[in-house]
Amino acid sequence: MFQNLGEMLLLFTRTLGSLPLLWRHRQKVFDQFFEIGNASLFMVCVLSFFIGGVIALLTGPVLVDHGVKDSIGGLVGIAICKELAPVMMSILIAGRIGSSMAAEIGSMRVYQEIDALRTMNINPIHYLVLPRLVSIAVGLPLLVIFSILVGWGGGALVADLNNKIGVDFRSFFANLRDTVRISDVANGLFKSFVFALVVGVVSCHQGLQTIGGPRGIGRSVTKAVVNCIVMIVILDYFLTRLLL
């Protein structure tokens, strides 16, 4: 495990070291960026809307019982932007994009495409890892912004339409505005940025480590997704503690 962590750290620092070459690889960054947005935007909307709705549904009646139903906007707002949007979206991206990164790079490794790149004096880190890491590091926080807004909308809609809650849109967002600070949103975005780096590095590393045939590729994909989720959840605790 420690060897893997060391290798991932090395991969990350080498990728950081290749950042000056970013402009040269801009087309690949845009392609990956499009892939992330295109593959995930619809799913982000659906997931975020229902997460916001469920939080409102679970907390609303309790707040009504305690006579503080107007604070539902702030509660849903904070829960979504500081925790649920960054964590859930990162897990979603680990499943959708991390798996495809590990599979693509893993298959390139197994079928000697990476060897071919090396014989052409093309560094696989610059050619494959840099564009993917940059696009996910930019793309995931953007998706999280989107997710926060849709999640708040979902929560507001449920709070308005559910008879047991009965908080209208205006009151919901008034309380949300009073409670949620810009720094809360920034905290969530910072978390998602860190998680994006984790997903990018873990998935690319797993892809580059692939050995064997199709079974090896499958193993790499599974390991990439599982490792990403485990690392996201563990890091989430420490980041939350740090940002309190």
């Binding site: 693509e104 079928y111 000697q112 060897d115 071919a116 790149l117 014989t119 052409m120």
Partner: peptide
């Protein structure tokens, strides 16, 4: 340069892009 037994062409690129990759 090396010509691999399998060809080792990059499957995500066209033939033209593969040949001109270097």
């Amino acid at each position: 340069a090396m010509v691999f037994q399998s060809g080792a062409l990059l499957n995500s690129l066209t033939v033209g892009e593969n040949v001109g990759l270097y």
